[in-house]
């Protein structure tokens, strides 16, 4: 019951948090910023509209948003929010999750290539390259988690008795993991310093340029999928930060959703104080995150168990 409730809450609340990022950025810029519910308004507006399709496109273009949306929802079904058992789980579900996200990416990329636009092709080439490297980081983290917890499913990573949190026995390694995961979050969700969602020059975009030609409900599906994806990574990090062992599961859930704002604030702060990297430095950034994860893995060989 609690897991079902928290899933519904997550699905409903995911568009709220990106509003926090905008607020933080506005704060740094000394502005008032858009209202907190701005993303809901945007989604509602998009759902009311029709669409314009390019004459170059085929059915693949329309399939892109649908697949990427489905691929963004699936990981949430397997995610144990606030330590509650997830809706589904099995040994190896993390691999399925990562590959389903890969499926979403495949169709986003193919749909973008369908428009015959040189800019979108450029974005696709970057997206597949960077996310391949980011996937390496995630697998290094999975190796570490398997080593520490002996299991391969998201819900048993964070179930009782497992101590994959900062306060646990191997907290030192979790520090590395959190940093690596945050770097992956920035990469996979195309935030500064990897990509700038607020830029206006198509030549420099990664994710935004791939969805240039989508409009109306299609765009709404893509946006919502992007919110879920960001939510997934943020929730992952929060689970690592804090064990959520309050006696009442409802309290845990509330605590969890409040803490989530922390990650989004961090994203907002990073976005306000950093400039984006030159494109050729991005692989180095992601490689650094991989090596962080790998450092942790190697350390489990030697001393830290």
């Amino acid at each position: 019951m609690a897991s079902f409730l928290s899933l519904l809450l997550a699905l409903a609340a995911a568009p709220l948090y990106p509003g926090i990022i905008l607020k933080v950025k506005a704060f740094f810029a000394g502005k008032k910023g858009p209202p907190l519910l701005i993303k809901y308004y945007t989604l509602w507006k998009l759902l009311q509209k029709g669409s314009v399709y390019s004459t170059s496109t085929t059915f693949v273009f329309k399939l892109g948003p649908v697949v990427s949306f489905a691929a963004a929802v699936l990981p949430l079904l397997f995610f144990p929010f606030a330590g509650n058992a997830s809706l589904f789980s099995f040994h190896g579900d993390v691999v399925l999750m990562l590959y389903v996200m890969g499926m979403g990416r495949f169709f986003t990329v193919v749909a973008a290539l369908d428009t015959a636009s040189p800019f979108e092709g450029m974005g696709c080439a970057r997206e597949v390259f960077f996310s391949t490297l980011a996937e390496l980081t995630l697998f290094a983290i999975l190796i570490l988690f398997y080593r520490l917890s002996g299991s391969l499913s998201m819900s048993s990573f964070f179930s009782e008795g497992n101590t994959l949190t900062l306060a646990g026995a191997s907290g030192a390694l979790i520090v590395l993991v959190i940093v690596a995961l945050f770097m992956v979050l920035l990469t996979e969700n195309s935030r500064v310093p990897v990509d700038d969602p607020a830029t206006h020059l198509e030549l420099t975009m990664i994710h935004e340029v791939m969805i240039l030609d989508h409009s109306g409900p299609d765009l709404a599906l893509i946006e919502l999928g992007a919110f879920y994806k960001l939510f997934f990574y943020a929730a992952f990090i929060i689970q690592l930060l804090c064990p959520f062992s309050l006696p009442l599961s409802l309290l845990n859930i509330i605590f969890f959703f409040i803490l989530l704002a922390l990650v989004y604030t961090a994203v907002g702060v990073i976005e306000s104080i950093m400039a984006r990297f030159k494109m050729n430095l991005v692989p180095k950034f992601i490689l650094t995150s991989f090596v962080l994860g790998f450092f942790a893995v190697i350390l489990t060989m030697g001393v830290l168990q």
Binding site: Y53, S56, A116, S117, D213
Partner: peptide, 10 residues
């Protein structure tokens, strides 16, 4: 909904 078609945004 109104569904239209046109050239790709260049």
């Amino acid at each position: 909904k109104v569904v239209d078609s046109g050239p790709t945004w260049g």
